[in-house]
Design a protein around this nucleic acid. Structure first.
Lengths: 244, 244
DNA sequence: GCGATTTTGTGAATGCCTTCACAAGGGCGT
DNA sequence: ACGCCCTTGTGAAGGCATTCACAAAATCGC
């Protein structure tokens, strides 16, 4: 899906690689993309404290990775470092922003105003990073029509209309698991192509739609596994009766 | 850290592999562990609807992976399928539960009662999956002392005491980024070995402590990247001025 | 009983990501 | 102006994860 069936620049477009590199996102590995967001955060922090230049070594430390990985990651964006000196914080920040498509702010729809939905609506990290909550939807009649963060909560039945009128491409799903697939289907039908799913369900979507899942219980279970390993317990006695 | 320096069963203990496999977690790949949680959810759902047996094909579909991967993942737990038939839902559920260390319920501390913390406290997924919120802590005096879900909110200064008296090994950090490292240090000092971090910061911990990070902004940025790719935009004009 | 049929468990191959290690490049001091 | 020293960018190697494809195992029908 990433580098598939898209041979626009198969042989000719490699020419002016320097200039092209800035916006050439054709072959950035998935793992690298995920880390760019982390680098970006570290860079923004450094920019705020007035740091002008940073070496791969210290940026890597701030981001919690090793420096070779950092340099390789950044090399996919182009060549924005200066040997012997390091990276210009402002320039690199801008390049990552552009690579991630954050130069233009993005309208996001939030579906579901339960506890989690409310927390997400209030999360400052969204707004401060180029994402604008452009619509909030819920199914509960007693919530629909109330105002939150300058928006009127719309009923989920209006989803199609809301998505097209606000030109929304990204949706955050924070509804109960039982409703998630239905909401997802409607989103896809309305033209949404990226979904961040907080419901504990696997969403079924067509190939052109991206879904990322945040699964709180799963994260805890993974921790539990390692914790179990560390504490040296071997998982109870063998006499534990199973099934029957 | 996973399969290192622990040669207890180097040559002799391979004998009764059938029995040992059940609790042998020495070499389960990280990627597999992450998926076990997904399989578990699908299995629990099937158990509730009365399905007794499931093939790798249909379980894989439910979990959103391909069947070969599923089978390889499950093979790390031991051999719990029946050829020509499939997997016994109850038995496999129990095995995954045990592998993930969920057979014994685990005390979790929740640090930070902001919007997100409140949402997490109310999240049913924790309780229903063997995790018990055993303590809630916050720094704000007006919150400390209030009661929530049967617990009295304690002040963060009491962290050390709370952790040891409730025998807590896992903590969920939902405090502002500026406070996260400090809270983390205290948790580690108190003996917590697994941390689920919702604060948008890289936490620095000793090697024996596991940290998993849930970064909402980063997830959106990753989606943004792919969305950008899909919409065919090449990231604005080259004349965009950067820095200076 | 026995072969046909189904589905698991797994070696082997492939591909992706990380890590290593060093040559190339650029500033800075003298 | 020149050489030293620092740091980037990147081939190459190694490790981990996914996928393929098939032999082994177990039920079911006859």
């Amino acid at each position: 899906m990433i580098a598939d069936g898209d041979e626009l620049n198969a042989d000719g477009a490699r020419a002016d690689q320097r200039a092209a590199a800035a916006t050439d996102q054709r072959s950035i590995p998935e793992a690298t993309v995920a880390r760019l967001a982390v680098y970006l955060r570290a860079l923004v922090g450094m920019g705020e404290t007035g740091t002008a230049t940073v070496s791969s070594e210290s940026l890597a430390t701030a981001a919690g990775v090793n420096s070779a990985k950092l340099r390789k990651d950044l090399s996919y964006l182009g060549s924005y470092g200066v040997r012997g000196v390091g990276y210009d914080v402002a320039l690199l920040t801008e390049q990552i922003n552009r690579t991630l498509g954050l130069h233009t702010d993005r309208a996001v729809a939030l579906i579901g105003l339960g506890h989690l939905g409310r927390a997400l609506a209030g999360y400052a990290g969204f707004a401060s990073r180029g994402f604008r909550i452009a619509a909030i939807l819920d199914a509960a009649p007693e919530i629909v029509g109330s105002r939150l963060r300058g928006l009127t909560v719309r009923h989920i039945g209006e989803l199609d209309q809301v998505v097209s009128e606000a030109n929304i491409a990204i949706a955050v799903v924070a509804v109960p698991a039982s409703a998630a697939q239905d909401v997802c289907d409607r989103l896809v039908a309305a033209g949404v192509t990226s979904i961040l799913n907080f419901a504990p369900t696997v969403l079924n979507v067509p190939a052109h739609v991206d879904v990322r899942k945040v699964d709180l219980a799963a994260e805890l279970q993974i921790l539990s596994f390692h914790d179990n390993r560390k504490s040296g317990r071997l998982g109870g006695t063998d006499s534990m009766v199973v099934g029957t």
